[in-house]
Write a protein that binds this DNA or RNA. Structure first.
Lengths: 133, 133
DNA sequence: CTTGACCTTCCAGACGCTGGAAGCTTTAAA
DNA sequence: TTTAAAGCTTCCAGCGTCTGGAAGGTCAAG
């Protein structure tokens, strides 16, 4: 199939699919006219990439997952630990974002938000009398 | 003060400070020897940038915050709404990450994680019998 | 035969730095 | 005084992950 069809079934834009070829993730055959020719297996791999990318795996992690997927003798534990590690990273990010939210929330609560020129938020950013954090 | 000192008091690496000059955020004077010469005000602005970047504001948002900071007649409401908008973005990101976490958590729970070659996580990524999402 | 959709390649840009090379100046120690 | 180290300069390139655009080839429909 052409790249347009591959894009349709994988849910990835053609530009992204070409990029994935460039970095060696999914390298299709070529038709006589020079067009990329994706097999069904290629289509599966692209869909696999779309799904794992959307779950927050990096390109290199996806490469690893793909090679585990290709390896018929791999242990499922390898995959599980990669996923667990990803969960830990996500939790860490959430914790950081919650911290930011709290700090910004404090700032916003302290700001009267009217037309007066003094503003506790800017005062805090400038390092005056820190509210917190 | 030289860039090293400015780095020290702002908490930003020299490379970053040079970059901020390049994009016009903080442009210092120059000494006779060609070295950057940061005033105390420059130092404050760098610290301001360090703090607002660490709170998740983008460079362009920081530029806006700095100009609000410079403008003695600005309304604090402008700043407040920018901060509130940032909070909304953060909440949105947290919600997305929680969704990812749930999905990955389901996958991990379903995976036996031993040495057997079949793996529900890879099966899901490949699009077989979706567990959720 | 023409139009328009689709395909190709290549180059550049987005964000926000970060690293390194090559070559200054200044400072401190031997 | 010489020398070595630290700090400064500029310029160029790269990180990750695409995304946009230009210039041009190919194909299917009317």
């Amino acid at each position: 199939m052409n790249i347009g069809k591959a894009a349709e079934i994988s849910g990835l834009p053609p530009k992204t699919i070409r990029y994935y070829e460039e970095i060696g993730l999914v390298v299709p055959d070529r038709s006589e006219n020079g067009y990329r020719d994706y097999s069904d297996v290629d289509g599966h791999r692209l869909k696999f990439l779309q799904r794992s990318r959307s779950l927050g795996f990096s390109i290199e992690e996806c490469r690893m997952l793909l090679s585990l997927y290709d390896d018929k003798h791999r242990a499922s534990g390898d995959v599980k630990s990669l996923a667990q590690q990803k969960i830990d990273e996500i939790e860490e990010k959430i914790a950081q974002l919650n911290g930011l939210k709290t700090t910004l929330g404090n700032l916003v609560r302290c700001c009267h938000g009217d037309h007066r020129p003094d503003c506790p938020i800017l005062d805090d950013l400038a390092g005056k009398e820190p509210l917190n954090s």
